[in-house]
Amino acid sequence: MSLDGVSSQGKGYQRELSNRSVYSAFQIAVQLPRLYDYIYAAFPKLYNKNGGSYGKINAVKSLNRRHNSHMAPYGHEQVEYLSPDGFITPLVYGLRALMTIEQPQKSNDSPHVVWSQDPVPWLDQHLTSIIKRYVTIFTPWEYDPQKIGKSIGSYQNALDDYKLALAGIE
């Protein structure tokens, strides 16, 4: 934000955003907490739908025993299960597959980040198959959210799962 190509000096220490590319990235970024909560709320149900038993995972049992209130992290809506962030964050990272850089129509305009698909309707249609592939990493990582959430492979796997769904490979 301190770069002159991104923002200009405003009042005092403030700077005014002037770069449309960065502005478009911020427009996407403000949607991510809502999408995180969407995935967070859907994950246990879709995990179970794919033959799992989410509530029996030790990390899930432990987390849910320690908290009386089961709320999504950002919007604070009621959820069936609290989920370790290490299980959810790679799936949120996978949303990158739904973003693209749109090149400007006018020569004086700058590229901007946009959704290639409207994320919520797209997730409604494809999240089940994404999770079915994604959870195959749970066994090698012994259902440990710390290992899953810290492994670069988990993030790449989730991104690849999104790309497969985009390509129509369910």
Rank of each mutant, 00 (worst) to 15 (best):
residue 122 W to I: 00
residue 123 L to I: 10
residue 105 Q to N: 09
residue 117 Q to R: 10
residue 121 P to S: 13
residue 125 Q to C: 02
residue 117 Q to Y: 14
residue 115 W to D: 01
residue 131 I to K: 04
residue 111 P to M: 06
residue 98 L to T: 04
residue 121 P to Q: 15
residue 118 D to Q: 15
residue 107 S to H: 09
residue 132 K to W: 01
residue 105 Q to T: 13
residue 114 V to M: 12
residue 103 Q to T: 12
residue 103 Q to C: 06
residue 105 Q to G: 08
residue 102 E to G: 01
residue 95 L to A: 09
residue 107 S to L: 09
residue 103 Q to H: 13
residue 97 A to G: 09
residue 102 E to P: 00
residue 100 T to M: 07
residue 133 R to K: 15
residue 121 P to L: 14
residue 109 D to N: 15
residue 128 T to Q: 11
residue 126 H to A: 01
residue 104 P to E: 01
residue 117 Q to K: 12
residue 116 S to E: 08
residue 109 D to E: 12
residue 111 P to L: 07
residue 108 N to I: 07
residue 126 H to W: 05
residue 111 P to Q: 12
residue 96 R to V: 08
residue 120 V to P: 00
residue 128 T to W: 01
residue 96 R to A: 07
residue 125 Q to A: 08
residue 117 Q to H: 13
residue 132 K to H: 06
residue 100 T to R: 13
residue 130 I to P: 00
residue 101 I to E: 08
residue 129 S to I: 11
residue 127 L to A: 04
residue 96 R to E: 08
residue 112 H to Q: 11
residue 112 H to A: 06
residue 106 K to P: 03
residue 131 I to Q: 02
residue 99 M to A: 04
residue 129 S to N: 10
residue 95 L to D: 02
residue 132 K to V: 03
residue 98 L to Y: 05
residue 129 S to E: 09
residue 95 L to F: 07
residue 127 L to C: 05
residue 95 L to C: 08
residue 105 Q to M: 10
residue 98 L to V: 07
residue 95 L to Y: 04
residue 124 D to R: 14
residue 120 V to F: 14
residue 123 L to E: 02
residue 104 P to R: 13
residue 106 K to Y: 08
residue 133 R to D: 05
residue 103 Q to P: 04
residue 113 V to H: 06
residue 110 S to C: 14
residue 122 W to V: 00
residue 125 Q to T: 06
residue 108 N to C: 11
residue 129 S to L: 15
residue 118 D to I: 11
residue 118 D to C: 07
residue 112 H to E: 01
residue 99 M to P: 00
residue 101 I to W: 12
residue 122 W to A: 00
residue 113 V to Q: 10
residue 123 L to S: 02
residue 127 L to R: 04
residue 116 S to D: 06
residue 127 L to K: 06
residue 133 R to N: 08
residue 99 M to H: 01
residue 100 T to G: 10
residue 114 V to L: 14
residue 103 Q to K: 12
residue 101 I to R: 10
